[in-house]
């Protein structure tokens, strides 16, 4: 059992990204905050075989996709690729309060949970619960 839980955090909104990152770091997580899906996937694949693989990923849904175009399913695409690379890997999707349907779709596609942005303390509890399982 590692000392720190390693989290891959992906969101193109810099302020959101930084804020969530800070909350997670405070909660004791080892956080890699990434602003685009391409970098995120590369980082994930790089570390998958290393001795410090990610334990969980937290992904925004609406971001520029792998072609760089703003795409409400960009997070879903990344989710598929992460699960492809490592089946069963725990993923939490971040969603705006008015996009919950798309987040539920992500859960149907294999995400462990979705989280409505804004209450970061709850996100910490959610990550801890998923890691415990």
């Amino acid at each position: 059992m590692k000392e720190e839980v390693k989290v891959l955090l992906v969101d193109d909104e810099k302020l959101v990204l930084r804020s969530v990152e800070k909350s997670l770091v405070r909660a004791g997580f080892d956080v890699e905050a990434v602003g685009d899906v391409t970098t995120a996937l590369a980082l994930f694949k790089e570390t998958i075989a290393s001795d410090t693989p990610f334990d969980i990923a937290v992904l925004d849904l609406n971001m520029p996709n792998f072609e760089g175009e703003v795409d409400p399913t960009a997070g879903l695409q990344l989710l598929s690729k992460l699960l492809e690379a490592q089946p069963g890997f725990p993923v939490i999707v971040l969603t705006a309060f008015d996009e919950v349907e798309r987040a539920k779709e992500a859960v149907r596609r294999g995400a462990r949970a979705y989280f409505v942005k804004g209450r970061e303390a709850d996100l910490i509890a959610l990550i801890e619960r998923i890691i415990q399982d």
Partner: peptide
Amino acid sequence: GNKAAPIPG
């Protein structure tokens, strides 16, 4: 909503 999201944290 997106812009406001980081404020509470």
